[in-house]
Design a binder for these strands. Structure first.
Lengths: 194, 194
DNA sequence: GGATAACCACGACGGCCGTCGTGGTTCGGC
DNA sequence: GCCGAACCACGACGGCCGTCGTGGTTATCC
């Protein structure tokens, strides 16, 4: 499919920048070529059709969106606790807002996947795997709460990111504080009714 | 601008259906004409440019997304309580998932607005007004919590809707139950630390 | 009842799109 | 040092896009 992985990634990264900056409407083979600074036709050679291009971007985005191994290793050395979990979520929010292009592109892909069955299958697998991993980590660490609480957190953090990266209600609260409160109330509240 | 409001709304509704079904990429004047069953060129006459078309859709979407007056009146007769507030949110989730096109179109518009300053200003105003109204209602009703708690709920419900309407993690929990838990923990938790 | 203006259907134009084909080029095996 | 295959740059084609112009039609007011 692709002989030169470097060039393929270069093109995919250019495509993600376009997806964030111009939306699905601006994502074309020629635009990717221009953004990547390669001759016209290159993107068409690496991603023969438009759906192949979208699939390529989906593949690439999860390589890049994975947490920084250094941060993960750092967190892994600490004793499991809600404070640790809070820092883990804060890292996600900080990283995604520091690279808004990636997250905006992911939102675009999620919307696009709602219409494109093959893309939905691929994206859904990755999202579900991430969710399952979070649940497994949480349970293994002996923290309060389980799958239900992780799902609630997932929704809330996604909504927060959507607000931060698109049209916002400008409530003006500090994201770190919001994350802290979400963990505190949603997870610790697992002990409470109902 | 528009002589015939009925026809304008007919076109705008067709545009919203397209936005949900085909995304921003499929939203064209000709596609709107075809979807609305009117002669080619009609959409171009009512919305002279593409940004005018987007602005028209944004205007229309908030007319249609407003809560059902009957439901609001019904809720207004009951004593203010967290149960009442939960029912209010459940109505929002039920209504938006019953008409997924509208909500998906709103997500598309929010992403589009992140790039288009004039659309962002218009959309932002409406979103902020809705948020302020929710806060005012909450405080006036004497319910626990304030602006902070409403913002948290707003994030969580938006994230829930995003999950329900686009690529989902398929956690499998009942949305009504999720809403109930969110209100319970996020709002009632306002009394707890931190 | 006619004039005036607004509205509307329709066509045309330049531009950009996805896709495919076609030679030029590079690289590894012998 | 040659040969074959894979890769790549580039052009061409049919199609759809946004926009603008142009007559035909309808409605309103004197």
């Amino acid at each position: 499919m692709a002989r030169n992985p470097e060039r393929r990634n270069l093109l995919a990264d250019a495509g993600l920048r376009i997806l964030a900056a111009a939306g699905a409407r601006g994502l074309t083979h020629r635009a990717v070529d221009a953004e990547a600074g390669v001759p016209t036709g290159t993107a068409s050679n690496y991603f023969p059709s438009r759906s192949a291009l979208l699939a390529g971007l989906a593949e690439r985005i999860f390589d890049r969106i994975a947490p920084d191994p250094a941060v993960v290793a750092d967190l892994g050395r600490r004793e499991p606790s809600l404070a640790l979990f809070t820092d883990y979520l804060r890292d996600i929010v900080a990283r995604t807002t520091r690279e808004p292009d990636l997250t905006r592109a992911l939102f675009e892909l999620r919307l696009e996947a709602a219409r494109h069955p093959e893309l939905r299958a691929a994206l859904g697998d990755v999202l579900r795997r991430g969710y399952a991993d979070d649940v497994a980590f949480h349970v293994a660490a002996g923290l309060p709460g389980g799958a239900y609480e992780i799902a609630l957190l997932h929704y809330a953090v996604d909504g927060l990111l959507l607000d931060l990266l698109t049209t916002s209600i400008d409530a003006g609260f500090d994201p770190d504080q919001v994350v802290s409160t979400l963990v505190s109330r949603l997870v610790r509240g697992a002990d409470l009714a109902p």
